[in-house]
Design a protein around this nucleic acid. Structure first.
Length: 290
DNA sequence: CGGGTTACCTGACGGC
DNA sequence: TGCCGTCAGGTAACCC
């Protein structure tokens, strides 16, 4: 996809690293500023858009924090949070005008940044699996969307290995589905699940309850490394807008197995295999992963 | 409760 | 060229 004139392509390809980079980008322009108006061009995306609540909580209030929880982008004000999710196909674009430049633009938000400059955030999402909503108050953890979410995999304070080992006991679900379950740990999407399991030497179809302590340690490290390397790559792209061919940081990440069915495993040369688990393609090396 | 499937929606792509 | 089936990075609602 080509960059639009007068715009900054903030993100596409929404897995956790992309949302993390998106949060960093939006933070630079929005922190200390405010959203002065929001226009919605349909009443629902994945769910109904609570326009009145969004306006109450966000519009005209200073943006105190721009952050991320799971794959949700959060703009905090003194009244609550604006919450955006990009689903499978969403993008958030910073543009210089409210004029629609892409089909499937469902909302535009006028942003006055901390220096008083005006920009427009365009929410684009062809498949409409994304969502824009708002949460009142200062505590997200009580809200239905956030209440049952697992820990952040990149939280350095959290003992992810112990958590994965403990929660997986007696579980017969495939380990790939287990780590993609947001109740277990958030932010591990289909691509990075395959990549992390390759790094950890675990087959995606392995029953979660059969992993040993050492496997959980390796898997926790693999998840963190895979995600943080992708964040670093996205960040690199974010600082370097010369990729006008539209390539984003995501494509700079070396994927070992995902999307490489039939190609040689980068460790041993065996042909990468692909199976379907829970309807999602899952790539692995039958030699390196047990 | 756990585990598996389905549904939501558009667009891109390959085969015929 | 066009039609059709399949697939795509997410997630919650279902059913058994």
């Amino acid at each position: 996809m080509l960059l639009q004139p007068n715009s900054t392509q903030v993100t596409q390809m929404p897995e956790l690293p992309e949302i993390e980079c998106l949060a960093r980008s939006v933070r630079m322009s929005a922190l200390g500023g405010s959203i002065t108006q929001a226009k919605f061009f349909r009443s629902d995306l994945r769910w109904k858009i609570p326009v009145d609540t969004i306006e109450d909580v966000v519009v005209g209030r200073k943006i105190l924090e721009v952050t991320r929880r799971s794959k949700y982008l959060l703009l905090r004000t003194d009244a609550g949070f604006a919450v955006m999710h990009l689903g499978m196909s969403g993008q958030l674009l910073e543009q210089s005008s409210p004029e629609l430049s892409l089909p499937h633009t469902h909302a535009v938000m006028e942003l006055h940044d901390s220096r008083g400059e005006q920009r427009w955030l365009h929410f684009v999402d062809p498949r409409r699996f994304g969502q824009i909503t708002a949460v009142r108050g200062s505590d997200l953890s009580k809200d239905k969307l956030f209440r049952k979410l697992g820990p952040e995999p990149l939280d350095p304070e959290f003992d992810l290995a112990t958590h994965l080992h403990d929660l997986s006991r007696e579980r017969t679900v495939a380990i790939k589905n287990f780590i993609m379950d947001a109740h277990v740990v958030v932010g591990v999407g289909n691509i990075y699940a395959s990549e992390a399991l390759f790094r950890a030497g675990l087959r995606p179809q392995r029953k979660a309850g059969t992993i040993r302590r050492v496997d959980a340690v390796n898997l926790a490290a693999a998840i963190r490394e895979t995600l943080s390397e992708a964040v670093a790559a996205g960040g690199t792209t974010f600082r370097d807008y010369r990729h006008t061919d539209g390539s984003s940081g995501w494509f700079k990440v070396q994927l070992a197995v995902y999307g490489r069915r039939g190609e040689p495993c980068p460790k041993c040369g065996e042909k990468v295999r692909e199976i379907r688990l829970g309807g999602r393609s899952s790539a692995f090396c039958a030699i390196c992963q047990k």
